[in-house]
Design a protein around this nucleic acid. Structure first.
Lengths: 196, 196
DNA sequence: CGATTATGTTGTCGCTGTCAACATCCAACG
DNA sequence: CGTTGGATGTTGACAGCGACAACATAATCG
């Protein structure tokens, strides 16, 4: 009901998406090529155009998928903790963990401006993830574990923090070699700079 | 003494660099093209290869220039304040301001891993800027305005913070439209999340 | 002045994104 | 059950790109 059965190459759209994710993971966003994606899907170099307007549209779809996965990861991490503030912290760590686990995917998600009009699906998935974060912030505020005040501003503060850590880590700017060390640093930052 | 006088096209290297900066500002990093840079310098499409090994080398040179400019901006902003902590805060705001003023340039500086071996100049300029930040952190610690402890860790915390704000702002993720509003947010973050 | 080397040009290659034209195949309707 | 139309996939083409090689020129140094 969601989707008409494909014709020749059953599922081509999903196959293309999966190939794109894999290619980005291997070659990085710069090595990502519509033609190589088509090759991996064993399809002519122009077949992708039947499912994505252009290169950017396929990248946006990849980004949308990433936002959903990120959202899931944050929710799963948060749900392992009882207290609201702990849940928020865990979600923040999950954000960094996701960036470390899928750096190229993460890069695709945030390298572009993703105009709301042209890529509504990606925008929506992005907003979903942010609403999760906002919810965690508000919960922490309601129990007094987090300072009262503009929750939007606080959520953006938390986002900026973990995003900065993730970006610096991915681009090799942090002097920590292992993921463990990086996550320890992230924990340090979260513990010391969330305004209680 | 710094440089042998150029032959045909006096100064081509600098002209190329300036053209590259301008092109990046106009077309963004993705629209940056070696051949377009050559065109703007009124030179054949292969002339740049006499001065830069490849596209990446020219981008690295642009990045290096950006780090120096960023460093100057932070120092200038810091020097307008007497107290160490105020100096640190001002430098952080200058970081965000720089990103907002030259978003494409900033993107080029941080989009790549810039391997230390292949682009030593850019790496050095980057380390210079970070050492400026570290110095400001240590000063703030020595007067007790900033919590004692590992200054490297604290400097990285401060960096992550402003970097996250800058990145989110540049990619249009913050719900603030004007630079003023963004800087107000940055000030809020800095004031509330630097561990005193 | 002659030779060497730095600098710039022309030509070429394979790759890319995208468009247009053509082919194929499912599905709905008579 | 057959036809037809639209969705899907292919072939071919084009310009632009990064990079390499071969060639041309000009500045420097003996």
């Amino acid at each position: 009901m969601r989707k008409k059965k494909p014709y020749h190459h059953s599922n081509l759209r999903e196959v293309l998406l999966a190939s794109a994710v894999q290619l980005i993971a291997e070659a990085g966003p710069s090595g990502f090529t519509l033609r190589e994606v088509a090759r991996r899907a064993s399809v002519s170099h122009n077949a992708p155009y039947r499912h994505f307007r252009d290169r950017g549209a396929l990248l946006a779809a990849v980004a949308a998928e990433g936002y959903l996965e990120l959202n899931d990861a944050m929710l799963a991490a948060a749900n392992q903790q009882p207290g609201p503030l702990d849940r928020l912290k865990r979600a923040g760590l999950a954000y960094v963990t996701f960036a470390l686990r899928r750096p190229e995917h993460f890069t695709v998600m945030f390298e572009t401006m993703l105009s709301k009009e042209s890529h509504p699906e990606a925008t929506k998935a992005s907003e979903l993830a942010f609403s999760t974060l906002t919810g965690l912030v508000q919960s922490s505020q309601s129990t007094g574990q987090l300072v009262a005040g503009d929750s939007l501003q606080l959520a953006l503060l938390a986002w900026s923090m973990v995003h900065g850590i993730a970006k610096l880590a991915i681009t090799g700017r942090l002097p920590y070699r292992s993921k463990t060390k990086i996550l320890e640093f992230a924990e340090f930052v979260i513990d010391h700079s969330l305004p209680k």
